[in-house]
Computed example of a mutant assay.
Amino acid sequence: MAIFMRHDFPGNVRELENILEFAFILCPSGFIQLEHLPEQIQPQDIPTQGQPQLNTPMTLEEAKCHTVLAALSRNNGKRMATCRELNISKDTLRRMLARCSELGVK
């Protein structure tokens, strides 16, 4: 909401409508997140939630963790839905989450 309040909307209500429609199309869960907003309205200094900066070096293990955690977030914490999305077993998901915790990836 704060992002919308800071944007000046030169197109007024019509621009706001278009931004919300755009975001809703991109969001699979019906709950609009920061990453669903168009680039021109996203704050430049804040990375999208759950995703590392693109030019931040990381190991393959850390990249896997970010992928698993992003999928878990998209599925609202539902582990079986996350398993189906990633095409992995629930035991694999459990092990990956434990490994992410060990690495300190959040």
Rank of each mutant, 00 (worst) to 15 (best):
I3D: 04
F4R: 01
F4Y: 10
R6N: 11
R6D: 13
R6C: 07
H7S: 06
D8F: 09
G11S: 09
N12L: 14
N12E: 15
V13Y: 10
E15A: 05
L16A: 15
L16R: 12
E17C: 10
E17V: 05
E17D: 14
N18F: 06
I19V: 15
I19R: 03
L20Q: 05
E21F: 07
E21C: 09
E21S: 12
F22H: 06
I25E: 14
L26M: 11
L26N: 15
L26G: 15
C27V: 01
P28C: 08
I32K: 04
H36M: 06
H36E: 07
L37R: 00
P38E: 08
Q40H: 15
I41E: 01
I41D: 01
Q42V: 07
Q44K: 14
D45A: 07
D45Y: 07
D45W: 05
I46C: 04
P47G: 02
T48C: 11
Q49R: 07
Q49T: 15
G50A: 01
G50K: 00
P52Q: 09
P52V: 05
P52W: 08
Q53Y: 04
L54H: 10
T56L: 08
T56P: 00
T56V: 02
T56F: 00
P57A: 05
P57F: 03
M58A: 06
M58S: 09
T59E: 06
L60F: 12
E61S: 12
E61R: 13
H66N: 07
T67A: 14
V68K: 01
V68S: 02
V68D: 05
L69V: 10
A70G: 07
A71N: 06
L72Y: 02
S73N: 09
R74Y: 03
N75T: 10
N76G: 08
N76T: 13
G77F: 06
R79N: 09
M80S: 15
A81Q: 11
T82G: 04
R84D: 12
L86I: 01
L86D: 00
S89R: 09
K90S: 15
K90C: 11
K90E: 15
D91R: 12
T92K: 09
L93Q: 07
L93S: 08
L93T: 05
L97H: 02
A98W: 00
R99F: 11
R99V: 02
C100L: 04
S101V: 05
E102G: 08
L103F: 06
G104S: 09
V105C: 05
K106H: 14
